[in-house]
Structure formats: C-alpha cells, structure tokens
C-alpha cells in the first residue's frame, strides 16, 4: 500500500511536468493555431543547459532565471525560422515539418555537445525522502509540484491582468481585429513561442534532479505532454493539470506493476481513446467554426 501511495506521489510530480509542457502547447496554439513539435527538445535543452551551469558551480536558484532566458531565445528562434514563414504562406504542413526538423536538429546538436549519456543533476533540496501518510515522498517532488503550479499561475495572472497579456488573449481570439487595435500580432506570436519554450526549459530544470538529464530525453516527453494537452483540452488550464496527473499516475503505476518498458503505453492509448470519443478533450470546449 505504501508503495502504491508513493507511486501516486511521483505520478503527480511527473504529471505536473507534463502539465507545464502541455501549457506551453496551449500558449502557442491559442495565438497562432500552431504547435512546436520540438517542445520536448526545449525541455531537454533547458535541463542540459541547467546541468552545465550546475557543473560550473552555479547555484540552482540562479540557474532557473538563466535557463528561462535561454528558453525565451530558443522559442524565438523556433518561431522565427520554423513557424513564421509557414504562417506567411498559410501552410500547415510547413510548420509541422519545420518544427519537427528544428526539434531533430536541436537534439542532434545536444548529442554532439553533451554526448549521448545521461547525467545526474543535483537538486537544491535534500535527497532523503519525507513521510507523508506513511509513504515516502522526495522533497524535490514537492518542489516540482509547487514550481509547476507557480509557473502556470504566473503566466495566467500575466495574461489576465496586464495589458500585454490581454493583447495575447485578444490575438488568440481574433488576429485581424487585434491588429486593428494596434497590437503587433506577429510579435505576440513570437512572444508566445518564447514563453512556451521558457515554460518547457523551466520544467526541464525542475524535473532533471528527479529523472536524469540526457540529450535524448526530449522526444517522448513532448509526445506525452501532447497527450496531456489533448486529454485536458487545448483550451482548458484546469484540464491539463487533471490530464497531467491522470497520465503521470498511469505511467508510474504501469512502470512499477507491469514493466518499465511499457510505461509510455497507457498515456498514448488514453490519447487515442480520448480522441475517438471526445476530440476536444475532456475539459475542452467544442467550438463551432464559421464557414
């Protein structure tokens, strides 16, 4: 039983990370109806840059803002080279392929810089587990949950309260009309990519002490986070937290009770099932498109 609860705890922590990446998908999808297929690679880069800084002796709390800035730059690069030309020629195929290509390139770069191995990333808190309800929980897991929620809340508050955040929502609602209000909508889209990569890089630094950091860790994370975004709905902030937790727990349970090799399977099967029953996600709104 204790093990079961412990698995639930780690599932929640893992799920929150998926939630943060999924949140990044939501950001760009809202403003430009595009997604970064290399989102997982952004997370991986965040973790690897963080690791390098950590090895240089930089304090963990200082690493976070540096990695976030790196994320802003990385996201802008993806938008500028991968997405902007595709939006211009209105090619869906274009941005899907180019963000995939950029993801592949980033991964390959990382492999050449950091090698193919995986490394331990020392977290800021003790490694000794705490006991809650009789089960072990790592302090880092608590930190992950707090960090993830804090990040999503910060972005939400920014969007709801600041005039720039409202400009982001306005662009998401109606791009042309936003332009008429004096909002530079291409800049808003670039910004949403920068923000999206920032959240992913942040998630990378958060999760790395729990898992291991490695150049090839990105791909499956990006995919599972997409599953979360679909299960929760691409328009629901609450949905991705619930979706993240469901998938995170299903993954830790499968990993322990069946086999670690199968741990990714339930998320992907849930993804297929949700899509076939309710394509807008469990918490998403069905929108009627005007013809």
């Amino acid at each position: 039983m204790d093990i079961f609860i412990q698995l639930i705890y780690s599932g929640i922590a893992l799920g929150m990370i998926y939630g943060v990446i999924a949140f990044g998908y939501q950001l760009t999808f809202a403003t430009s109806s595009t997604l970064n297929f290399g989102q997982g690679e952004a997370l991986m880069l965040g973790a690897m840059v963080g690791l390098t800084l950590s090895n240089l002796g930089v304090n963990y709390w200082l690493i976070i803002p540096i990695v976030c800035i790196f994320g802003l730059v990385q996201g802008s690069v993806v938008e500028y080279f991968g997405v902007r030309p595709a939006i211009k020629i209105k090619s869906e195929f274009g941005w899907i392929m180019s963000t995939i290509a950029l993801g592949v390139i980033f991964r390959n770069l990382a492999e050449n810089i950091w090698g193919r191995g995986t490394y331990r990333f020392q977290g800021p808190v003790a490694d000794e587990p705490l006991k809650i309800f009789g089960a072990n929980i790592l302090p880092m897991e608590i930190l992950v949950v707090i960090g993830a929620v804090a990040m999503m809340l910060m972005v939400e508050i920014f969007n709801r309260k600041s005039i720039y955040g409202k400009a982001v929502i306005a662009t998401a609602n109606d791009r042309d009309a936003s332009g008429l209000m004096g909002i530079n909508t291409s800049l808003v889209i670039t910004f949403s990519y920068a923000l999206s990569s920032l959240t992913a890089c942040f998630a990378g630094v958060l999760i790395a002490p729990l898992t291991l950091a490695g150049a090839s860790a990105g791909g499956s994370l990006g995919l599972k986070a997409f599953a979360v975004a679909i299960v929760g709905g691409l328009s629901s902030g609450f949905g991705i937290i619930v979706g993240g937790i469901i998938l995170g727990i299903s993954e830790t349970l499968t990993g322990f009770y069946i086999s670690t090799g199968y741990k990714d399977v339930p998320s992907l099967i849930i993804l297929l099932i949700v899509l076939s029953i309710k394509p807008s996600g469990l918490f998403g709104k069905t929108t009627i498109k005007k013809v």
């Binding site: 409202k166 929502i169 998401a172 936003s178 004096g182 909002i183």
Partner: peptide, 20 residues
C-alpha cells in the same frame, strides 16, 4: 469582431492599447 473571451472592460482597454 469583439474579443469574445475577454470582458467588456478588457475590450475597451485593448481599444486603447497604443495609448497604454
């Protein structure tokens, strides 16, 4: 073309975006 998921006040505020 109002911004449907923002409030009336927010919409008015965005009308003044260049001023703000």
């Amino acid at each position: 073309r109002v911004f449907s998921s923002l409030t009336v006040f927010d919409n008015l505020q965005l009308g003044a975006f260049p001023r703000l």
